[in-house]
Amino acid sequence: MSVTALHQVSPAPQGARLSIDKIGKVFTGPSGGSVKAIDGVTLNVEPGEFLAIVGPSGCGKSTLLQVIAGLMSPSSGAVRLGAQDVTGEPAHMVYLFQQYGKSLLPWMSVAENVMFSFRHRIVMTRSAARARCDEYLAMVGLLDFADHYPWQLSGGMQQRVAIARALAAEPKVLLMDEPFSSVDALTRLDLHALILDLWTAKRFTAVLVTHDVDEAIFLADRVAVLTHRPASISEVIDTNLPRPRLSIETRESPNFLALRHRLLAHLLARPGGAAHDAR
C-alpha cells in the first residue's frame, strides 16, 4: 500500500483556524451529582496543523474531542472554526471513531460506506460519486475491496475504510479519537505512515487524541498534554521534528527520544498517574 506518490502534490493548507475557547464540560449524574470532565481548555489549531492531545485514560480526552466535533455541547466556552461557531451540525469537521468496527455500517458495502460520507450533502451523479469514492479507496489501498462488506476485512483494513470515509467527506478538520488504539502494533505503524501521507496530500487540519506518547510525537506538530480529570491543558510542546517523518528513523532520532522522555516523565509524575498509565 504505497502512497508515496501523494508526496508530490502538497496543496496549500485549507480552511480556517480552529479555536477552542475556554471549553468546560460538566456531566450531571442520574442521582443529581455532577462531575466536571473538562475544565477551561483553550487551544488554537492553525489551518493544516497536526495537533495531538495526550492524557491518561479516562481524563476526558474523548469528551473534549466530541465537544470540538459538535457531537456534544460544552457546558461553557465555545468552539470556532474561522469566524463560525461550531454548534450541533459540525460543518467541515469529521470525527474518526475509535471503534472502527462499529462505526462502519455493516449493511453497506465498503464503497457505500465511503459514499455515505458525502452523497447526501452534495448533489452529484452516481458515477461522479463512485469516482470520488474510488479515489479515496485507492489512497488507502483498498480499491479492490470496494464491493466487500466491512466485516469481511481485518481490523486494520476496516480502520483504513473508516479513514477513507472520513476523508472522502473532504473535511477542513479531521478529529481522530484514538483511531489506532485497537489495531496490532505493526498495523498501527502502517496507519501512522498512511495518515501522514494523506495529511500531506490533502492538507486538512488534524487533531488527534491519544494516550500513546510515541504516536503523538511521531505524527504531530504540537502535543498538548492534559491533566487528570477534570481535563485541562498542562503543557503544549512543539515537536520540531523534520518532515517527512520516517517510520523507523524518526522514532530513533535523539530529538524524538528526548521529547518522549520529557512527555512520559510529565505524565507519570502526576499523583496517581502511573497507576492509570500502566494499563
Partner: peptide, 25 residues
C-alpha cells in the same frame, strides 16, 4: 448509538439518517 454519531459527523439530515441508518439497523 455510534451510528447516530456517524450520521451526525457527516452532516446527514435526520430524515436521511432515519432512512439510511436507523431503518436498516
Amino acid at each position: 448509538p455510534i451510528y447516530d454519531q456517524v450520521a451526525k459527523t457527516f452532516g446527514v439530515s435526520r430524515w436521511t439518517a432515519l432512512r439510511r441508518v436507523v431503518f436498516p439497523a
